[in-house]
């Protein structure tokens, strides 16, 4: 489904990614972990199309998408969230989530100006779909009409997940979905992520620092350190891997 092959990325003299290769497990959750500065977010940006890799390729459904821009990749069915929430702050929760469904609608400019007819029926169908499939699912009914700026951090994260879900993606990339959350919020978010995977069968790629969560919900884990892929395997294999322990805790004296 999503396959990364020998990905190299550098900024000037800094080599951010040095030959990353792995495959996201279809219909399962794959975790990407590593210490700060390991290249996790750079990897995400390269996969979603913001960075052009120096070498290597990203395959989606057997097709090389390395040359496509972020908006084209979204059309193919890739969604993502950002580490530091990237919602549209001037809009309500409902409008933010509706934006996620942008590529699923066909309303043209001319139809939009008239509204009555095609645009109206599309919008009403969308509203119903979003209310029932996203807002109800994520339990955010009570805040749907509020502007983003009025929401606490944890809820903003959940709305961002909702916006990604509205795309009905086949691959969902979550960049630190529980960063800065307390234990209860983390547990809630983990449950939502598992629900998404179970209910929609979405392939999920997850960057996260919370080891408990990664070990609990991921089927496969990829470990990065200084841009290099130092381990890959099941959570159990990875947590026993000497290279991983060394990267996280430092070598024994």
């Amino acid at each position: 489904m999503l396959k990364i092959q020998d990905l190299h990325l550098s900024f000037g003299g800094i080599k951010a990614l040095k030959g990353i290769s792995f495959e996201a497990v279809p219909g399962e959750i794959t975790g990407v972990i590593g210490p700060n500065g390991a290249g996790k977010t750079s990897l995400f940006n390269a996969i979603s199309g913001f960075y052009t890799p120096d070498k290597g390729s990203v395959h989606f459904d057997g097709r090389d998408i390395s040359g496509l821009g972020p908006d084209r990749r979204a059309v193919l069915g890739m969604a993502r969230t950002f580490q530091n929430i990237a919602l549209f702050r001037g809009m309500t929760v409902l409008d933010n989530i509706k934006l996620g469904a942008h590529t699923r609608l066909n309303t043209t400019l001319w139809q939009a100006l008239r509204y009555f007819g095609q645009a109206r029926s599309d919008e009403l169908a969308l509203r119903r779909d979003i209310e029932e499939r996203v807002i109800d699912f994520l339990e955010i009914d009570h805040i749907r009409k509020l502007p983003i700026t009025m929401l606490p951090y944890g809820l903003q994260k959940r709305v961002e997940l909702g916006r990604a879900l509205a795309m009905q993606p086949r691959v969902l990339m979550l960049d630190e979905p529980v960063a800065g959350m307390n234990r209860e919020e983390t547990a809630d978010m983990a449950r939502f992520i598992l629900d998404v995977q179970e209910e929609f069968g979405t392939t999920i790629l997850l960057v996260e620092h919370d080891m408990h969560m990664v070990m609990d919900i991921c089927t496969r884990v990829v470990v990065l350190n200084f841009g290099e892929q130092i381990a890959e395997g099941s959570p159990e294999e990875v947590s026993g891997n000497p290279a991983v322990i060394k990267a996280y805790l430092g070598a024994a004296a």
């Binding site: 979603s48 913001f50 821009g69 972020p70 908006d71 979204a74 969604a79 993502r80 950002f82 990237a86 919602l87 549209f88 702050r89 001037g90 809009m91 409008d95 509706k98 934006l99 996620g100 469904a101 942008h102 590529t103 609608l105 309303t107 043209t108 400019l109 139809q111 939009a112 509204y115 645009a119 599309d122 919008e123 916006r163 795309m167």
Partner: peptide
Amino acid sequence: TRVGRAFIAIRDRDYSAEIL
């Protein structure tokens, strides 16, 4: 409609608009 929402998305955060 989606057209107007896309405009606002570009105003508020253009890279996030692209990802959608």
